Computed example of a mutant assay.
Amino acid sequence: MENFRLKVFRAVAEALSFRKAAEMLHLSQPAVSQQIRALEEEVGTRLFDRAGGDRHNSQIALTEAGRVLLDYARRSAIMLLEAERALAALNHEVTGELKLGASTTVAQYFLPRILGAFLKQYPQVHISMISGNTEHIAEAVANEKVDLGIIEGPALRRDLKTESMTPDELVLIVSPLHEWAQRKTVLAAQDLTTSPLLMRERGSGSRTVVERALRQAGLRQRELKIVMELDSTEAIISGVEAGLGAGFVSRWAISKVLRLGAVKVIKVAGLRIAREFRFVWPAGAELSGAAESFYRFAQAATRHEG
């Protein structure tokens, strides 16, 4: 429902780049420039200061008129979105855009099948998703870059509200050729200090949960032989398969490699690393529209699985 020229204007104004706006809108740069030029002619004033006079130059800034129009364009977009939702509600429809943020394990191993079922039931919803570690997704939610986040660990922020989605467990895996894979007895917690370990990067929800569990088991970080910090669960699994060390990963992530015999799960006495995947959204805010529908759909889906 939003005027197309205003939509293009908002994209350029918020990115301060014709190139980035073109990429986001899936348009060519000349098409974006043409829309901005037409809008400036329509309102009778320049909306951007362009360095060197180049319309494609990324070094641009809003003029005073541009700043005024951006404020009204944003408010207009919000009102039109509310109008779409209100009209859809009259027909008991769920429509519009849903911007999700998900931690890497959630995005790669857990969420795809839920998204597929959701879109089958609500085909008029357009979904975009970003992924990153828990810290990254929490920041995106706080800055309202996404409507709803799903994270692997605690948000550790007072400006965000979290709610349980589904339980998860982190398990220790090794290569079938690792010495622990041949043991007949359960591993003692202290044995974890004798082998190279692959860990997720700092800021990862998985890293936070693993470190907490190891401390509770009486192990200090300086006792561990952390040989590599990796930015994804997939990287840890690949490293373990290659014999680089042992690693902790979500059970959701290893069903395929377990079937193939590429890794083996090792039990550690007195160590069970349970956690929850959690929804996260700004504290004090209420979910609405497609975000609320997805929240309720995902809750029902995970309860049914449980």
Results as ranks from 00 to 15, higher is better:
residue 102 A to V: 02
residue 139 E to C: 07
residue 121 Q to P: 03
residue 143 N to V: 01
residue 137 I to W: 03
residue 104 T to A: 14
residue 122 Y to D: 06
residue 124 Q to C: 09
residue 117 A to Q: 13
residue 116 G to N: 13
residue 129 M to H: 03
residue 121 Q to T: 14
residue 131 S to F: 04
residue 126 H to K: 15
residue 103 S to P: 03
residue 147 D to L: 02
residue 136 H to M: 10
residue 146 V to R: 02
residue 127 I to N: 04
residue 128 S to M: 09
residue 116 G to T: 12
residue 134 T to R: 03
residue 103 S to K: 03
residue 120 K to W: 11
residue 136 H to W: 11
residue 120 K to R: 10
residue 140 A to Y: 00
residue 126 H to Y: 10
residue 121 Q to S: 08
residue 146 V to S: 05
residue 125 V to G: 06
residue 119 L to C: 11
residue 147 D to I: 01
residue 126 H to M: 12
residue 143 N to C: 08
residue 129 M to L: 07
residue 117 A to S: 10
residue 112 P to W: 04
residue 134 T to M: 00
residue 109 Y to L: 12
residue 102 A to Q: 01
residue 147 D to T: 02
residue 108 Q to K: 15
residue 136 H to G: 13
residue 103 S to H: 14
residue 106 V to I: 12
residue 119 L to I: 13
residue 106 V to S: 05
residue 123 P to G: 10
residue 139 E to A: 07
residue 132 G to H: 09
residue 134 T to S: 07
residue 102 A to M: 05
residue 104 T to E: 14
residue 134 T to E: 04
residue 104 T to F: 15
residue 121 Q to L: 12
residue 137 I to K: 09
residue 106 V to G: 02
residue 108 Q to M: 10
residue 113 R to L: 07
residue 131 S to L: 01
residue 109 Y to C: 05
residue 104 T to V: 13
residue 122 Y to F: 11
residue 134 T to G: 00
residue 141 V to A: 07
residue 138 A to G: 09
residue 136 H to S: 11
residue 104 T to Q: 14
residue 144 E to S: 08
residue 129 M to Y: 06
residue 120 K to Q: 14
residue 130 I to P: 01
residue 103 S to Q: 10
residue 145 K to N: 11
residue 117 A to T: 10
residue 103 S to M: 08
residue 107 A to M: 04
residue 147 D to S: 07
residue 142 A to Q: 04
residue 116 G to I: 04
residue 113 R to A: 11
residue 144 E to C: 02
residue 118 F to C: 06
residue 143 N to K: 11
residue 145 K to M: 09
residue 134 T to C: 07
residue 106 V to F: 14
residue 102 A to P: 01
residue 104 T to Y: 15
residue 104 T to N: 15
residue 117 A to G: 03
residue 138 A to T: 00
residue 102 A to K: 02
residue 130 I to L: 12
residue 137 I to Y: 07
residue 122 Y to M: 03
residue 112 P to M: 01
residue 105 T to F: 02
residue 114 I to H: 15
residue 125 V to K: 06
residue 116 G to S: 12
residue 141 V to Q: 00
residue 102 A to E: 01
residue 140 A to P: 00
residue 132 G to D: 05
residue 105 T to V: 06
residue 126 H to Q: 15
residue 119 L to W: 05
residue 108 Q to W: 07
residue 145 K to V: 08
